[in-house]
Design a protein around this nucleic acid. Structure first.
Length: 425
RNA sequence: GGAGAAAUGGCCGAGUGGUCGAAGGCACUCCCCUGCUAAGGGAGCAUAUGAGCUAAAACUCGUAUCGAGAGUUCGAAUCUCUCUUUCUCCGCCA
């Protein structure tokens, strides 16, 4: 959520900034709402003040044993007038909140302008794609030929399209990857491991910006009292740890890592990546989250991105780092780096991690603040998150990059201690 | 699932209709005393938001907030209803 005072100030400049992200702000609408808000707020608060002062006098008179009747008559019609004023004021406030909570975050100045992913900027490329002296297979065929250790038919029988079953050594490889990632981040990168709920309430989903705008991306569990949402990323659970709190400066930075399944309805992506494990309704991810002070957030983004990259480096998977352009940067993000891993069967790099600095956007939505010791004020915290990494896609990358002519898979060195074997056959 | 109790500021905790945004304590900040890793004294110390003033802040005034929402009342932390969460006992259970 943006600071409404930015809009009350130079609204033209903000509108221009929002346009780089494809958001069109109706300036007249906002100004009209604001003018009405001001009028209604003043009116409501004046009536409240009047009621309060009269009520106070009643109390004083009664304590002196005097008859307050003359004063009470003054207040007889105040109640209804006040109730009506309060009602219109809260309605209007809600309209403003709705408008505000649908507006995306402002981008950092270092983000290049662009409409879509074709205009993202490559920051660096690490590793060289292997050249194969045999006809390569994609991960679907590889998994199928390895005794159906990756089984899409079985999954579709159980659940439908966009699910997969892993078996035996490949299931273990999946677990080994998770374990390896968690160990790296906790032992070498300073993150604290967390186990978190996979179902969250609407307030939590609002806090990180998934609601209200992206409700259709969720799987929703409807209940009598309160609807719950299956998390689409552990970012939601982890970041909201600090919601509604005022932290002390020395509590920051907070660095957390969690391994969770992620559930995505993939509404609106029919036909895209229908084959394989790339785009599915359920996948595992190891997620990094940092809660930091404002002045640290962009350096923290570089650090966090490096942490995710280190996993790829250890696995010796070729990848590149992309700085997303304005049009491709997510709703809540001020700046995002995507890590893209080399996928041999597609002869291209595919997203395997997304690392974002959300500046104070989520902090404001969550009311997560830190007491600034030099000013005494409460500043909104800055939040960051990044996949470190998406486990399913990492598995795809390993199957394809480490495939052998006979269809077996060499286990990357970094995972051998977890696997107790060198090859998957 | 059944029965009962509770929810107050960063923390603990008082407060059952009226000058209560809330006693007291702890923590924290500043000052004094003292002087050495202790103790004493004084002051300050919730959040959000609006208006005024300002270059900005400070400041002044107002409003809202005592788990959430609704109600009773001139007036609600306090009374009523609904919900949520926590704790205790019983049942069930991975």
């Amino acid at each position: 959520m943006l600071d409404i005072n930015l809009l009350r100030g130079d609204i033209a400049a903000i509108t221009k900034k929002l346009e780089t992200k494809g958001y069109k702000l109706d300036i007249d609408k906002f100004n009209n709402l604001e003018n009405e808000r001001k009028f209604l707020q003043i009116k409501t608060e004046e009536l409240q003040a009047k009621r309060n002062s009269i009520s106070k006098q009643v109390g004083i008179l009664k304590s002196k044993g005097e008859d307050p009747q003359s004063i009470l008559s003054q207040v007889s019609n105040l109640g209804e007038e006040l109730k009506a004023a309060e009602f219109s004021f809260t309605q209007l406030q809600k309209n403003i909140d709705d408008l505000l909570s649908g507006m995306p975050n402002l981008l950092d100045d270092s983000v290049p302008l662009g409409l879509n992913e074709t205009e993202n900027k490559e920051v660096r490329k690490v590793g060289v794609p292997r050249s194969f002296d045999f006809d390569i297979k994609d991960h679907v065929d590889l998994g199928h030929n390895l005794n159906k250790q990756v089984d899409f038919e079985l999954a579709s029988k159980l659940s439908g399209s966009r699910f997969y079953v892993l078996k035996d050594k490949i299931a273990k490889l999946h677990r080994a990857l998770t374990q390896f990632m968690l160990d790296m981040h906790t032992e070498s990168h300073g993150y604290t491991e967390m186990y978190v709920p996979y179902l969250v309430n609407s307030k939590t989903a609002f806090g990180t910006g998934q609601l209200p705008k992206f409700e259709e991306d969720f799987f929703k569990i409807s209940q009598a009292n309160e609807d719950l949402y299956l998390i689409s990323t552990a970012e939601i659970s982890l970041t909201n740890f600090v919601a509604d709190s005022i932290l002390k400066e020395d509590e920051l930075p907070i660095k957390m890592v969690a391994h969770t399944p992620c559930f995505r309805s993939e509404a609106g992506s029919y036909g895209r990546d229908t084959r394989g494990m790339i785009r599915v309704h359920q996948f595992d991810k190891v997620e990094l989250v940092q809660i930091v002070k404002a002045e640290d957030s962009f350096s923290a983004l570089e650090e966090l991105t490096n942490h995710a990259e280190n996993i790829l480096k250890k696995l010796k998977l070729p990848y590149r780092v992309m700085l997303l352009c304005s049009g491709d940067t997510g709703f809540a993000s001020a700046k995002t780096y995507d890590l893209e891993v080399w996928i041999p069967s597609q002869s291209t790099y595919r997203e395997i991690s997304s690392c974002s600095c959300m500046s104070d956007f989520q902090g404001r939505r969550m009311k997560a603040r830190v007491k600034n010791s030099s000013t005494g004020k409460n500043d909104f915290v800055h939040t960051l998150n990044g996949s470190g990494l998406a486990v399913g896609r990492t598995l795809v990358a390993i199957l394809e990059n480490y495939q052998n002519a006979d269809g077996s898979i060499t286990v990357p060195e970094a995972l051998r201690s977890y696997m107790n074997c060198d090859t998957i056959t």
